[in-house]
Design a protein around this nucleic acid. Structure first.
Length: 273
DNA sequence: ATGGTTGAAAATCAA
């Protein structure tokens, strides 16, 4: 079962390229971030035509997340429990697996937090604290859990093209990295780091020719509970989706690319692939 | 040191 995440930076502006990627990757579950539309305005039809169930947590102009799955999702949840958030940044559902135990999938769009320090950074840290509480509660259920999306966190220096230039940025500040590390210390596994060799990136700024110079950031992540990590069979970053010269030319690329992992029916011999 | 780009929206704000 392929579980994927894609910060699309507007579902409407990106639709031709998103559909092209869906047809190539054929994910069983996808979470989308920054759809930038209200729930009723989400273009569900082309996804439903491809056999997906569509769950949306929309917002006007900014943010907005969605969860699309080939099997009907159960226990759909919108927002991080117990956190009073003005923004639509989290959606979660229990997804049946055709051969094994179901996987609880949470899709998140963690606040950017810049400029730091300041109120926006305080909001980021508060969001991370609430998410940590929820992630801890999920672990206690002893299920296969996959929490993926745009974390807006660079976990370590390998995740940024010039670490020394980013030490004061909200995505890379020590306090941000420590909050991310606390999630891992709960018992979650950074799945992409398991299946790929560093360095690799998932985002390239639109400005300053970042793509051409490969000035990227690793900020989209997939965290797995032990029960899910034991079933990890693969994963990758679909980097080609960022190339303006490739793919459907009816739309420009997002500044993020899709990431995906594969979850098998049961525990794999020796862990990974 | 500044500027460079994109999207939604209607002047800027967020990224």
């Amino acid at each position: 079962m392929i579980i994927s995440s894609f910060n699309v930076n507007s579902i409407k502006a990106r639709l031709p390229r998103i559909l092209e990627w869906f047809d190539d990757r054929q994910p069983d579950v996808t979470v989308l971030q920054e759809i930038k539309c209200v729930t009723d305005a989400f273009p569900a039809a082309p996804f439903e035509d491809r056999g997906y169930h569509v769950e949306v947590f929309g917002q006007k102009t900014y943010n907005g997340v969605a969860l699309l799955s080939k099997t009907p999702p159960e226990d759909v949840l919108r927002g991080v429990p117990g956190f009073d958030d003005d923004n639509a940044r989290y959606i979660e559902a229990l997804i049946p697996h055709d051969q094994g135990a179901p996987v609880r999938v949470g899709g998140l769009y963690l606040p950017n937090g810049n400029p730091a320090p300041g109120p926006k950074y305080d909001y980021k840290l508060a969001w991370m604290a609430a998410f940590e509480d929820h992630a801890r509660d999920l672990l206690a259920q002893e299920e296969a859990v996959c929490l993926l999306g745009d974390y807006n966190v660079i976990p370590d220096p390998s995740g940024v093209y010039a670490p020394d230039r980013w030490t004061e940025d909200a995505l890379f500040r020590l306090e941000t990295r420590k909050a991310f590390r606390r999630l891992l210390n709960l018992g979650y596994v950074d799945a992409l780091a398991q299946v790929k060799d560093a360095p690799f990136y998932t985002f390239w700024d639109y400005q300053r020719g970042a793509w051409d110079k490969d000035h990227g950031l690793r900020i989209d992540h997939c965290l797995l509970s032990p029960q899910a990590a034991d079933r990890l069979t693969g994963g990758d970053v679909d980097r080609q989706v960022r190339d303006p010269a490739l793919g459907n030319q009816d739309a420009k690329p997002s500044d993020h690319v899709p990431v995906w992992i594969s979850i098998g029916p049961k525990e794999t011999e020796g862990g990974e692939t």
